Amino acid sequence: MRIAVAGGTGLIGRMVTDAARSGGHDVVVISRSGGVDLMTGAGLDDALRGADAVIDVANVTTLSRAESVAFFGTTTERLLAAGKRAGVAHHVALSIVGVDRVESGYYEGKLRQEELVKAGTVPWTILRATQFFEFAGQILGRVPGPVAVIPKMRSQPVAAAEVAAELVRIAVAGPLNRVVEMAGPDRLDIAAMAREVLRAQGSRRLVLQIPAGRAMAEGGLLPTGEVTLGRMRFAEWLADTAAPRP
Rank of each mutant, 00 (worst) to 15 (best):
Q138I: 14
S104C: 02
G73K: 01
A165V: 12
D100W: 04
I150Q: 04
Q209M: 15
I3Y: 00
P211K: 13
L188T: 03
R78T: 14
R128A: 09
K118D: 13
S64Y: 12
P157Q: 05
R142K: 00
I126L: 09
F133L: 10
E196R: 14
V92C: 07
A215D: 08
V172L: 06
F71R: 00
T74C: 07
V16I: 10
G24T: 06
R21S: 15
A235W: 08
L198P: 01
L79T: 11
V102E: 05
E226A: 11
L188E: 00
D18W: 02
A215E: 11
E103L: 12
P146D: 12
D26M: 06
L44K: 02
G35P: 05
I150T: 05
R85D: 13
T241I: 12
A191K: 02
M1G: 10
H90N: 13
L188C: 03
A217H: 03
I30T: 09
A129I: 08
E103P: 03
A89G: 13
V88L: 08
V197R: 09
A191Y: 13
A53S: 13
R154V: 11
G141D: 10
Q138T: 14
E134L: 12
A148M: 10
A6G: 11
P144Q: 03
F72T: 03
R187A: 08
I55T: 06
Q131S: 08
A51M: 12
E115H: 07
G35H: 06
V227W: 09
L127G: 09
V117R: 01
A212F: 02
R101W: 08
A20I: 03
L176W: 01
I150A: 07
A81P: 04
S33M: 13
V88W: 07
A89Q: 11
K110H: 07
L188V: 05
V29D: 02
A66M: 10
L176S: 14
A82V: 06
A6D: 04
V29F: 11
G43R: 10
V102W: 00
P151W: 00
T17G: 10
R112Y: 12
A242T: 15
E67N: 11
V36A: 08
G184V: 08
T228E: 15
D46I: 12
D37Y: 12
P211D: 14
P246C: 05
G120P: 03
V117G: 04
I3M: 04
H91E: 10
T9S: 14
I139W: 01
A183T: 14
V16P: 09
V117N: 00
L63T: 12
A171E: 07
L94A: 09
A42K: 07
L63R: 14
I55G: 11
V28W: 07
I170F: 04
A160M: 01
M15L: 15
Q113V: 05
E181Q: 15
A81T: 14
A160W: 01
A129K: 14
M216I: 13
L206M: 13
I126K: 02
R233T: 15
A19D: 00
A20E: 00
V122G: 03
G145T: 01
T125W: 00
G137F: 10
M216D: 04
T9C: 04
S155K: 01
T40S: 15
A58E: 01
E196H: 05
A53V: 13
W124A: 01
A4S: 13
R101N: 13
Q131T: 06
I12H: 05
D26R: 10
K84C: 12
